[in-house]
């Protein structure tokens, strides 16, 4: 199946993007274990129709022609790799800490490119406007400088020392405070946010966004939250996260262009966009072609 796809690669840029070698060799989330408990899931990964299920506790995924795809169970999800040389799949070790609740907050369809969805997740500057009264509030619009670095031999990107005033940072927050953030991009289409807990300000909540590349302008976004919160019920935790995500959705779907331009200066960055600039550079260094406008 895979070989034939690569053989047919021609000058059509769309086919080229769906056969992006960088993404073919990555593992991608295709469904949550919670969703699969209710039955098989039919979905699309890089333009290929897949049927995903859990049989005898083992994940299975099949192409439309019946051929099996490589699968893995990891972090509440089934992941699929379509390529011949699967990349190392990252872990989030913090999720194993005691007292943590780990909750799948839903898989959402968004008409945008996968890199745009990740870039938006990494952006502090939009909080007071798009997430007014929750993650930001005018006039607290300044993003203080933060540190950006690549680690793990260029495979992971970090932004550290991010600070931002948030009136209601989480479901259990009762007052506004300056929230400290660390952003981690361990995979070209996955991002993890470590965020100070509103009650126990020595510990961190973890929120992860795993973008399944359906196509260059269509994403299935899977959200995982792991919070230290023993007062809110699951519905409140999930509700808060979904509210934030749903506020971003119309912004993402109306961005022009939907694909992320990698050329420096294609979109004028300000200092607050250091992480966005670094993310574009990181994708360019990996050689990503899917959902981007190459430099």
């Amino acid at each position: 199946m895979l070989a034939s796809c690569i053989m047919t690669r021609g000058n059509d840029p769309f086919i080229d993007e769906q056969n992006d070698p960088v993404l073919l060799d990555q593992w991608h989330v295709v469904a949550s274990i919670a969703e699969l408990r209710r039955g098989p899931v039919r979905t699309i990964l890089l333009g290929r129709r897949l049927t995903v299920a859990i049989r005898q506790d083992q994940p299975v995924a099949h192409h439309a022609d019946g051929a099996a795809a490589a699968t893995m169970l990891h972090l509440e999800y089934v992941w699929v790799c379509l390529g011949q040389k699967p990349a190392r799949l990252f872990d989030i070790p913090e999720l194993a800490e005691p007292e943590r609740r780990v909750v799948h907050a839903g898989s959402f369809g968004v008409r945008t490119s996968p890199p745009r969805a990740i870039e938006n997740f990494l952006d502090l500057g939009h909080f007071p406007y798009v997430h007014k009264d929750f993650l930001g509030l005018e006039p607290h619009t300044e993003v203080p400088p933060y540190r950006v670095s690549t680690e793990q031999d260029g495979q992971e990107l970090f932004a550290r020392d991010c600070r931002f005033f948030q009136p209601r940072s989480a479901a259990n927050a009762s007052e506004g405070f300056i929230v400290e953030y660390v952003y981690r991009v361990p995979h070209p289409l996955c991002a993890v946010l470590y965020k100070l807990n509103p009650l126990d300000r020595d510990r961190q909540d973890v929120i992860a966004l795993f973008c399944q590349p359906v196509g260059p302008e269509q994403v299935r976004a899977h959200m995982l939250v792991s919070l230290l919160d023993d007062t809110s019920d699951d519905a409140e935790l999930i509700g808060f996260q979904q509210l934030i995500f749903a506020q971003d959705k119309p912004i993402l779907e109306n961005q022009v262009p939907l694909r992320l331009p990698l050329s420096p200066g294609a979109e004028v960055p300000v200092r607050a966009d250091a992480m966005s600039v670094a993310y574009r550079r990181y994708l360019a260094a990996l050689g990503l072609r899917h959902g981007v406008i190459a430099a």
Binding site: H104, A105, A235, I238
Partner: peptide, 10 residues
């Protein structure tokens, strides 16, 4: 009262 309609089907 929030009801986890999706994904929880509450």
């Amino acid at each position: 009262v929030q009801v986890d309609m999706y994904p929880g089907a509450a």
